[in-house]
Each structure stands twice: as structure tokens, then as C-alpha cells.
Design a protein around this nucleic acid. Structure first.
Lengths: 327, 327
DNA sequence: TCAAAAGTGTTATCCTTACACCCATGT
DNA sequence: ACATGGGTGTAAGGATAACACTTTTGA
């Protein structure tokens, strides 16, 4: 059972999806990058803060992420967690010159309060500009039925009949589900990957994927990003939406004290749908997730509201300490 | 916002935790490795199948994993998923010579049916030999109250008084919970990491971590493994125990048809606890997860049982298609 | 006839959902 | 007064946990 080590050495790219709330709008920290010279000469494209991992310099990858984010933007990160390691050549590689390709890219999710620091050389960008089909707070976005589904269905029909086509059609249904009740807000990454494979996001054509057909009106669903950064951002969003249900991560985006409606709107901003007011309040209060501070806020436009704070003790108690996001 | 690429290039180690069921005993595929020359001269230690990722050879890391597993053991993997990327120097590195260290190791989980192939140069090893404290099928294992908790508490007391000690004591409580009702079977990795930090698994001393004290009877809780392979195996177990609840992964370990008790015992083997028979049957049947094949099995020792098979259609239907593991 | 496992039925309880309604403030 | 958001009560429905009990086989 030999070690079977070859001399394949690669550069490890670390990428940080840093999420915050601007009011009740989810935002991520982005830097402006020079786009690929051939397909977008001179254009500036959004990117996540990134750097490479040098094991001789950094004891852990997490420390490396904190380091280059601080260098590039001046931000000091709080909560941070690893997302996924992407390693396929076909994607990021195509946008880079052969000799300096960083084939493996590791995504990190970090949570931040927008007000804490003012980033330098970087700016906050609304999430839903990159994923407009993910915002269901005002009902199903028009873009899905009008733009996305017809093109996805055409793409699936273009696959030669048989198992492969059936699977493609199943994927379309699972991801962008026929009726509204079946929308799974956690499938952010699956939906982005599907659009990528169908050639409906700009990154696909930039990476040199063959398009199903030549669109006279090239669909540009959502703002494109450099490399595979939008894929990483989609992973971050998926993780957030899943985790909010069983871990009190939402409080890393909130000020220390808040009203229950502020908390609800923040959860809605992340999960992308609307919640039932009365039940949300009850669940969050009786669940012991928050406690009243005793102070009141009268900035709310109606009756002054009690201010609450997160009850840190829940971290030691309950196996599931998140907020319900249905209905 | 410059790219800020340094010339830090590293080898990427891929490691496969391949899980199967031997009857109702969970097992993983292991290879015998030469232990570290200094601390264990000539000894053979268990390891997971592993290899390195060469982007010039393999299009994706998943393909690379399938490749070297097949080369090393003859096994063709079915279901496979990425677990986590570990990158801290202090650990695997200490066990390797400087010039060929592979600092970043990516863990993969694969599911297999033991009977399908007979692995060559590798063998199936029971999970719970590596993690004896994780098997609660016959109630709380003695080792926890008798061996582990006293030593963890002594370790926590050894930390200088203050926040750090309090946090350590909280961790001990959360991980190995004071009372049986609070045992969280998903915290496999947290528990292993805690034991590692407290110097109570052999890997800790092998990696050169300072022990809290010199044990006259060196605790060897669970079978040690090479590099950080036991950590990867713990991650695999955590993932399995979490995923079984909302995805029908258990069926990748089962034969095509099975009785409901076989299914229950298999779930219990993975989750490590006992389930309520009648309710398990009802949930699994009314949940539409399985359908009767119409055939019967009389090998069960009692009244012949209906044979069931997994209903593949659930993959297209339900947002949560797993099995309850409580109580 | 007994042990072992299969399989059915019923009830109490809890959690969620949905709806109805009152309260306090600013304009 | 009325719009806006804050806050409480309660009843219907569904899911689940706990228990009791019958059936069918092999030894």
C-alpha cells in the first residue's frame, strides 16, 4: 500500500464570502477585478476577497483568510467557517493562464456587521443582484416563470431522449419546482449549478462551455463574478439558509439589541421568504433564544417595541437553537 | 486589489472514508501503514486509502478518489461526497518528513456494500473500535463515566482559572453531556477533537502535543490511525449521522431488498442508539420511503417478514426524506 | 408450548398553524 | 381617527411517543 505521491503540487486559493445585512438587505463584500482579457477586455468584474495559502506563513487556513481579508479590506472577521473545496479544472482554470492556475479553491463563509468597519478597497454588494431568483420575500420572482423556466425547459428538450433528458427535466423541477409550495430555499447552489450547466449564466460561456444554442439575447441571469466566485457565494448562501434553522448564526449579523420585528426581517432577508409574525415571535421567545433587555425602542413607527438580546446560554443547552423559517 | 499570489505550492492529499455494514456492524475500509519511525518503530498502524491530487492527471478530485481507491483496493465506489479540508500544519505534518509533507488533506465519504467486492490489500475494520464511546446501542458505554470523563475533568481543572477553563468545562459537558438524554450523536468530530486537545488519544502525543500530565497508564481511547485519518473518519461519522435524518443514504449500505427490522438495525448501527420498533416501522412505511416487494423472508428467526425496497421516487418528491433516529 | 420476531390499533400529548383581537404610539 | 407596528389568547389539526395486543413461524 504505497503512498503513491506524485509531484503534483498546486496553489490553494482561499476565497471569503463575507456576509452582512444592510438594513434588511443581505450584502456581501466584493472587490472589483480586471475581467478576463479575451472575453471582457478592460471590463471590471466583481470578485470575492481572495488569496493563496502558504503553509510556511500561516499555521492554519483560517488564519490565512483572516490575514488577507484584513490586508485587502481592513476588516477584522468574527465568525468564520469553511464551506467547500472546489477542484475541477474546467472552470476557474479556463479564466487563468496555464502557468499560474490555482486549481483548487477553498471557500469560506464569514459573518460581519456592516457598521463595524468601513472596508477599504472593497464594497458591500447586495446578494440578490447575483441571485435575483432567490428573493421570494414579495412572492415568486417574475424572472423564474418568464425567463428561467422556459430556457431551462428548452435546454432539457435539447438533450437526446432517454435517461439523461429525464434526469435533466427532474433537476429542473426539483430546483425551480413547479409550484410555489415546493420551493426549497436551501437549494441555492443546485440552482446555480443547473443554470451554469445549461449555459444560462455568463460564467458558463466565459469558461468556454458549449452553449445549448446561441441566444440572440444572451441571458445574463444575475451579476457574474470572476473565477468560480459566484459558485462559492451560492454555497455560502445555501449554508446560511440551512444553518439559520439550527444554529443561532443570525445574531452575528444583528446589532447587540433589536426588536423582534427587526429579527424577523433579518431572518427573512437571509432565508428569502416571508414568515408568520405572531408565531415567529412566540417560537423565538418561548424557545429561549432571546431575552428582553428591559429597554424599549420607539423608532419603529408604531407602538414602542421591547428590545431583546441574544441569550448566549443557549449555546450550552439546546441541541437545536435556530429559528424556524416556515411559513 | 491585487491577486497577491505567493509561490506557496502544496501537495493535496485525498483521503477516503469508505463505510459499509458488516451485518449490523458499521465498518470502514482500512489499509495497514508503517507507523512513524520514531515513536512506533516498525509498528503497523491503520490508515484510510489515500493518494494525492494531480490536476494534470485528473479532471476532478472525485475522479481522483475513485481512481486511487480502485488501484489500491480494487473497489469501485458508488456514492461519494466531500467532507472537509484540513490544513493545519501542527498535525499531519509532524508525522511526516519536512520535504514531502502534504499539508492540506481533503476527506471524502464513500458508501459501499461490503459484499459487492472483495478488497485487495485492504480490509474492513469496525468503526466502533476507533470510537468506542460512540456506540450507545446497549446504553451508555462504561468507558465514558469510568475513563473518559474523569480524565477530561482533570484536564479542564489543569487549565488556569478564568474564561479558558470555563470554556473547557463547557465543552466537556456539551460533548460528553452530563446526562444520557442530552447525548448528541452527531457530535462525533467535536468529541474526538476534544479528546485530541486533552491529549487522550494517541495521535495527540504522536503529533508532539504537550500532555496535560504524564499518565502512568497511557490512555489509548480507541484505535489510533495514521496522520489525521481518525479525524477524517470522525468527520465521516458525523456527516453520516446527520445526513441519515434527511437523505435516504442508508439504502446505499443495504441490499436491494430487506425487512423493516434489518433497516432499523442498520440505522441503529450508524446512529449508535436504539429506536422504538413500532414507531420506526410506521414512520418509514407511511413516509413512503419504502414499498413492499410482495416477497417474504423467512430467515428472520420468527414470523416471516415482508421484504421491502427503497422507493427511488422520493428523491423527486420530498424535501426531507430520511429516517428519524429518536428515540 | 415457548421464544422470537412480525405486525396492528389506540390514546395522550405536544407542537405547529391559523385566526382573532387588543394595545400603544405618531401624524 | 387611523395607520403602523407591538403584543396576547386560543382553538383546530397533525405528528409523535408510549403502550397494549395479536399473528406467525422455528425449535
Amino acid at each position: 500500500m504505497g503512498a503513491a505521491f506524485e509531484k503534483g503540487r498546486v496553489v490553494i486559493g482561499l476565497n471569503a464570502a463575507i456576509v452582512a445585512l444592510d438594513g434588511f438587505e443581505p450584502v456581501f463584500l466584493s472587490v472589483s477585478e480586471q475581467g478576463d482579457a479575451e472575453t471582457e477586455p478592460g471590463a471590471h468584474v466583481l470578485g470575492l476577497p481572495y488569496g493563496s495559502f502558504n503553509p510556511l506563513q500561516h499555521r492554519t487556513m483560517e488564519i490565512a483568510v483572516r490575514g488577507f481579508v484584513n490586508e485587502q479590506t481592513g476588516l477584522s472577521l468574527g465568525y468564520i467557517e469553511q464551506l467547500y473545496t472546489f477542484g475541477d479544472r474546467g472552470r476557474a482554470a479556463a479564466a487563468l493562464k496555464q502557468d499560474e492556475m490555482h486549481v483548487v479553491s477553498i471557500g469560506y463563509l464569514a459573518l460581519s456587521r456592516m457598521s463595524d468597519d468601513h472596508p477599504l478597497g472593497a464594497f458591500w454588494r447586495p446578494w440578490y443582484l447575483a441571485f435575483p431568483w432567490e428573493d421570494w420575500r414579495a412572492g415568486e420572482p417574475d424572472i423564474i416563470k418568464k425567463e428561467i423556466l422556459p430556457r431551462l425547459e428548452e435546454w432539457a428538450r435539447g438533450i437526446e431522449a432517454g435517461r439523461a433528458r429525464q434526469q435533466a427535466q427532474d433537476r429542473v423541477n426539483i430546483c425551480f419546482g413547479s409550484d410555489a409550495a415546493h420551493w426549497d430555499e436551501e437549494k441555492v447552489l443546485d440552482r446555480y449549478e443547473l443554470l451554469y450547466e445549461a449555459g444560462l449564466v455568463l460564467e458558463a460561456s466565459r469558461d468556454g462551455r458549449p452553449a445549448a444554442r446561441i441566444w440572440s439575447d444572451l441571458p445574463r441571469f444575475g451579476e457574474p463574478m470572476i473565477f468560480d466566485h459566484r459558485r462559492i457565494l451560492a454555497t455560502a448562501m445555501s449554508r446560511m439558509r440551512a444553518k439559520i434553522k439550527y444554529r443561532p448564526v443570525i445574531f452575528d449579523l444583528m446589532p447587540p439589541s433589536f426588536t423582534l420585528l427587526q429579527l424577523q426581517k433579518s431572518v427573512e432577508a437571509i432565508s428569502g421568504n416571508q414568515l408568520h409574525k405572531q408565531n415567529f415571535r412566540r417560537l423565538v421567545e418561548t424557545g429561549g433564544l432571546v431575552v428582553a433587555t428591559g429597554k424599549m425602542s420607539s423608532e419603529t413607527g408604531g407602538r414602542p417595541a421591547k428590545l431583546f438580546r441574544f441569550r448566549k446560554e443557549v449555546l450550552l443547552e439546546r441541541r437545536t437553537a435556530g429559528v424556524r423559517v416556515r411559513p
